[in-house]
Design a protein around this nucleic acid. Sequence first.
RNA 1: GCCGGGGUGGCGGAACUGGCAUACGCGACGGACUCAAAAUCCGUUGCCCGCAAGGGCUUGUGGGUUCGAAUCCCACCCCCGGCACCA
Length: 957
Amino acid sequence: MKRYDPQSIEPKWQRRWEETGIFTAPDKPGTKAYVLDMFPYPSGDGLHVGHPRGYIATDAYSHFKRLTGHDVLHPMGWDAFGLPAENAAIKKGVHPAENTTRNIENFRRQLKSLGFSYDWSREVNTSDPDYYRWTQWIFLELFKAGLVYRDVGQQWWCPNDKTVLANEQVIDGKCERCGAEVTKKELTQWYFKITAYADELMDALDELDWPEPIKAMQRNWIGRSEGAQVTFGSDAGDITVYTTRPDTLFGATYLVLAPEHALVGKLTTTEQATAVGKYVEQAKRASEIDRTATDRKKTGVFTGSYATNPANNERIPIWIADYVLASYGTGAIMAVPAHDSRDREFAEVFDLPVRQVVMPETGAPVDGEEPRRSIVAIVEHPKTGELLTLDWEKGGGTLFVGGGRDEGEDPEAAARREVAEESGYTNLELVARGIQAKNHYHTIAHGKARCSTAELFHFRLKDEARDEPKLEDHEQGLFTVGWMAPAEVERRMTDPMHGFAFRWFMKREAFGGEGILVNSGQYDGLTSATARERIIADLKKRKVATEQTGYKLRDWLISRQRYWGTPIPVIHCKKCGPQPVPGEDLPVELPNVEDYLPTGDGRSPLAKVESFVQTPCPKCGDAAERETDTMDTFADSNWYFLRYPSPDKKDGPFDPAALKAWMPVDVYVGGAEHAVLHLLYARFWTKALADRGHLAFREPFLSLRNQGMILADDGRKMSKSLGNVINPDEVVEGLGADTLRIFEMFIGPFDQSADWSTQGIEGSYRFLKRVWTFGQRLAEANSGHTHGSDKVSAAERDWKRVASQATKRVTESIEGFRFNTAISALMEALNGFQSLADDAGGVPATARPYFERYLVLLTPFAPHIAEELWRELGHEDSIFTQDWPTIDRAALKQETAAIVVQVNGKVRTTVTLPTEGLTEAAAVQAAQENEIVQKHLGDAKPKQVIYVPGKLLNFVV
RNA sequence: GCCGGGGUGGCGGAACUGGCAUACGCGACGGACUCAAAAUCCGUUGCCCGCAAGGGCUUGUGGGUUCGAAUCCCACCCCCGGCACCA
C-alpha cells in the first residue's frame, strides 16, 4: 500500500490542472457564479496562515459551484499601489515598482502552492498602467458628472506618512496605517462627492445579503438623521440650530454654540469677553482627542447674551461649549437638558434649569381601563443616603411610596399623605417635583386595568418623626417598609414608572425616549411624533424652521501627496483653471524616478519631476502644470472586480458584454475591517458609473461573507514582532496543502476568529491519512463492481445511507458557509464507512460507488488527495468532471427508529421499532411494555400522551 | 453611552423549525503492536453520589410560557466588535 505523500501528489496535480486549464472561466458562461476574494496588498512578509482562510473558503465554494453545474469566475489580483507598499519599499531601499513585483511573485507562488483554482489568466494589478489608465478614466467620468471637486480646508495630516488622510483613515486621532498622532494642515485637495449618494447607500443596504454587523457599521457611518433647522432670534442676529427633536422645543432652556461658531464674537458681552476669549483659545489648542473624550466633564462659558425661543418667546441664555461640534449641523444647538443626556450633564455642571416637556408612557393601553391620578415619592434618608422602599410580597417587586390622588387634591399634599400613611414618616423636605409619567398596568390588589398619570417627587427626611402607618384594608400585610441602598434599589426595581423616577432624580439622567408632551402649551397631550410634525408645520409658516436631514458621512478626500499611486489626471492652467486630461492622453503614467521619498511640504515628490509637471493646457495650449498628487489607494480597489470579466480590454475599463455575463458578484469574501472604507466606496462608484450609463446594476456585491481572523496559539494576533507567525509554506511542506485547507475550514465557524493549534492541525492530517488508507484498501479490493443493479443488498443499503447522509450535510453546510460542519460531516461519514468495513471484515468492493461519491464531496476542501484517489481507483478523467451527488432522501431512511420515551418530560429510555408502518399506537404499546417505562409510570394512567412521529413519546402523569 | 454579535465539557465547537444537550476534532486516561519510542489501531472520557444496579444535576444568572426550553418571552450579569459629545 502506498504511503500518503502530499509533497509528491500536490505539486503534480497543481501542474496538471494548470496545464489543462480546467479552472479557466469561459467568456460566455451558462449558469454563472462570480466568486470573489478581496484582493490582497502584496506585502513583503508574504502570507501567514490567517490570510488564506477566506481564499480556502472561496476556493471550496467555487469547486462546489462548478461541481453543481455552474460556470465559475474565480479570479485573483493585486492591490499593489498605496502607502504600505511605498513605506515598505522605502524601508528596504528598493524602488516600490521593483519591490511590488517581487512581492507579487512570492504571493502568487504561495497561493499556487495551496492548489487554489484561480483563473490566473485574468490576474489584475492596480499599479499596471493598463489598469490605472482606467482608474483615471473613471475619475474623469465622475469629474464630468460633477462628482469630483476641489476644496481648501483643514485636512487630517499624518506627520509620519507625510500625507493627508480621509476621515475614515483616522482612528482615535491616529493614522490608520502607521499609528502616528495626526495633525491638521490647510491644503487644497480633491474630493469625491460620495454624500450625493448618501440616501441610496443607506437605503439599498436593506436588500443586500450581507452580515448584519457590516450593514450596521455602514448605516452608522452614513449616520442619517431626520430633523429640522430652527431659528432663534438674538441681539446679535438669528441663530439657527439643528435638532432631531423639535417636539422638545419647549424644553430648550439655553442655546450652545461651538467655540468656532461665527457669531461668538458678536454675542459676547463686554463683561464676558475675557472669559469667552480664554475659553475659545483653550478649545483651539486642545487636541481633537482631548475634546472628544466622552468621559470628560462638560466645560463651557456664558456669552452674556440671550436668545428668544420661537415656540414660547422665552428668553434663554446663550452659552459656548466644546461639546458642540462646529462641523456638524449648524454648529449650534438648542439645549434640552430634560431630554438629552449631554445637555443634562451640562445643566448639572452649570446649574441651568431642566424642564420636562415629554413624559414617558409605559405599558400597553387596554380598552376600558380606569384613568387615575397618582403620585410616586422617593424619600431619601439624609444620613445614609438610603431610599424608603416598599417590598411587595406577591410579585410586586420593590417600589417607592406610591398612591392615588383625590380629585382636587394638591399633588404634593397627596405625596406627603401617602408617605405618612404607608410608612409613618411625617417630616419631609421637598427636594424636587414637577415631573410626570404615565403608566398602563394591572393592579395587584384588585386586578383592574388602570392608566395612571403620576407626579413624581423627591423628598429628604428632615427627622425620624414617625406616626403609626394607616394602611387601607387591601394593603394589609402585602408589603414591608424599609430602607435600601440606591444600587440595590436599582437592581430590584421592576416597575417602569418607579424606575423612571429613580433614574431622573437619583441618577440625574435625561429622558431621551418618546412620549406625551407636557409643559408645551397648545401641544400638550400630543405624542412626540405628532408634536414634531405640528410644531415644524407651525414654525415653517412663521419662517423660523425648515426640515433638514443630517448625515455624518463626509465627502471622500482622495488627494495623497505620495509617489506610489495613480496620478490624478488633471492639468492646472493659469488661464483655464484645472482641466481634465483628455481621454486619448491616458494613462498619465507615473514616471519612474529615483527620488520618491515624501517631502513633507504638502506636495508630492512628483512636483520635483519637471518633465512630468510641465505640459501644455489641453484647452488653450499654453504652458500649464500637471496635478502632482496621486489618488488614495481605495480608488484603485473600487472597481477591480469590474476588470476581471474582461481583463485585457484595450479600449475601455470593461467590456459591457462581459459585465452582463458575470456581474454582479455573487459571493464576496473578505475581512470585516473593510466594512466602511472599501465596501462603501465601491458601492458609491458602482452607482455613479451606473448613472453615467456604464453599468446595468447598482450594487456590486449581492452577498458578502466575512472570515474571522486566525490568531496565534496564544490568542494574540500573529505578528512578526511577537514572533508567533505561522508561515503556510512550512505547513505545506510538512503536512500538505490539503491538511492546511481542511484544518482552516474545520477550526471553527467561518466568521469567528480562531486560535491556531499545532495539535489541532495534526487531527486534520490524521483524517486525511485515514481517507487515504481507506481509498488504498478499496483500490486493493480491485473490483470491477459498478453500481448498476436495482437490487441492493442490506449491507449496501448501509453504505448508501452513510454516503447520502454525508451528501446532505456537506451540501447544506457549504451552501450556508458553515464549512466547519461540512468537515465534521465528512469525518463522520468516514467513521461510518470504517465501522461498516470492520463489520464486513475489510473494505468490500461494493463500497466503491459510495466512496467515489464521498471523494466528490471531499474535493472542494482537499482537491489533491481527492484527485489522486480518484486516479488510484482507476479513473482516467479528472474528478472535477464529476457531478455533485444529489441528495437521496429515500436512502437516508433508517430501517429502525429509536424512539425516545419520556415520562413527565424526562428521558427514561428508548425503544427501537421498525420504521416501516410505524404508528403512534404501536409506539405507545411498545413503550408501555418496556420495563423501565413501567417502573416510572407505576399504576398511574397517563393524563396525556405526546407523540412526535418516529422520534419521541412523552407520557404525562 | 449607542449599535451589532456572543456566553454550551479540560479546550475549539455541534444541535434543522421547541423534541435523546455535549456531534466532530483536540487533549487526557487505559490497552494492543514494539526491546523501547514514534506512528498506527482499540476502548473510556460533562459534573456529583454510589462497589454496583441506579439516581440526581448541567447550556452565563434569576424568573416565565410549554407535556417538553441551549432554542421562545421578561429582567439582569459578563465577554467581543464597531461607533462615539453627530444634537
